[in-house]
């Protein structure tokens, strides 16, 4: 099952992410690496159903991109109480993602 994720926009990122925890993905619709990462995340969220999944479309949300100092996609951030505690740009496999999340 594809993991849907909660869409975050320029209009609501300040409010919704202020104290957020979970995995935040910056993506672009036609980006091949984003698509590959999404398939991996589908599996990650099946194994970790309690972890919140937040998504930001980089093309539609320049203000959120700037606020998170992010230029490239895909970028994955682990959030704790609204703070970025770990960040990774580019592809990861399921094993790497699990380690990345656990060590954050």
């Amino acid at each position: 099952m594809p993991a849907e994720g909660i869409p975050i926009t320029d209009a609501d990122f300040k409010e919704k992410l202020e104290h957020a925890a979970g995995v935040l993905m910056f993506y672009k619709k036609l980006c091949p690496n984003c698509k590959a990462l999404e398939k991996m995340l589908d599996k990650f969220f099946v194994a970790n159903p309690d972890v919140p999944y937040l998504r930001i479309d980089s093309e539609e949300c320049p203000a959120a991109m700037a606020a998170f100092n992010t230029e490239r996609v895909p970028t994955i951030c682990v959030l704790q109480d609204g703070k970025v505690v770990a960040r990774k740009v580019g592809l990861m496999n399921l094993r790497e993602m699990t380690e990345f999340y656990q060590s954050a």
Binding site: K28, L30, C31, P32, N33, C34, S58, E59, E71, R72, V73, P74, G90
Partner: peptide, 9 residues
């Protein structure tokens, strides 16, 4: 290696 992914920067 991917302009769609990284070009906007």
């Amino acid at each position: 290696y991917c302009s769609v992914c990284d070009g906007s920067a």
